[in-house]
Computed example of a mutant assay.
Amino acid sequence: MNLPEVIKDLVNAQNNFDSTAYANCFSETAIAFDEGKNHTGKTEIKSWIEESNKKYKSVMKPLEYTENGNTSVLSAECSGTFEGSPIVLQFHFEIADGKIQHLKVTG
């Protein structure tokens, strides 16, 4: 599967529970939406993913990737310490200048 570098970096950061590397995949003003909440900016995104990693210990296995201009969707099998694991989630990205501008996680 041919993933953009920033998405490869995001998956690697998630699978290594590295919240700093994860946040560094985003622009300074990025927005990440997950579980009904927006997390705005790299600092909030880092805090969100640190908390999520502690709570769920989730790892990602990319299954499919589609791209349309600056928007893309990664379907990934996510497994961890949450009820219903593993599940397939869709990660909807807007990417510009090699950084994630917007991420929306859906089930």
Score class of each variant (00 low, 15 high):
Ile31Arg: 12
Ile87Met: 14
Leu89Lys: 11
Thr43His: 08
Ala96Ser: 14
Asp9Met: 08
Phe33Cys: 04
Ala23Pro: 13
Gly107Asp: 09
Ile87Asp: 04
Phe82Met: 03
Glu94Asp: 14
Cys78Tyr: 05
Lys54Ser: 08
Gly107Ile: 08
Ile100Thr: 01
Met1Phe: 10
Ser58Cys: 03
Pro4Cys: 07
Lys99Gly: 02
Leu63Ala: 14
Val73Met: 11
Ser79Ala: 01
Ser58His: 01
Glu51Asp: 02
Ile49Ser: 06
Asn16Pro: 03
Phe93His: 00
Phe26Gln: 08
Asn15Asp: 07
Ser47Glu: 01
Pro4Glu: 10
Phe82Tyr: 15
Pro62Ile: 09
Ser72Ala: 15
Lys37Asn: 11
Ala76Thr: 13
Met1Ile: 11
Phe93Val: 02
Lys104Trp: 05
Ser79Asn: 01
Thr20Ser: 14
Thr66Ala: 07
Phe82Gly: 02
Phe91Val: 04
Thr81His: 10
Asp18His: 14
Ile45Met: 01
Thr20Cys: 06
Cys78Val: 15
Phe93Gln: 00
Lys8Trp: 10
Phe82Asn: 02
Gly98Phe: 12
Val88Pro: 08
Asp97Ala: 13
Ser85Lys: 02
Asp9Thr: 09
Ile31Lys: 12
Glu50Asn: 03
Phe93Cys: 01
Ile95Pro: 00
Lys55Thr: 14
Leu3Arg: 05
Val59Glu: 09
Ala21Glu: 13
Ile87Gln: 07
Asn24Gln: 07
Thr66Leu: 04
Ser58Phe: 02
Phe26Cys: 10
Glu35Phe: 13
Val6Pro: 03
Pro86Phe: 03
Pro4Thr: 10
Ile45Ser: 03
Trp48Pro: 00
Phe93Asn: 01
Gly80Asp: 08
Asp9Arg: 14
Ala30Leu: 06
Pro62Ser: 11
Ser52Tyr: 11
Thr29Ile: 09
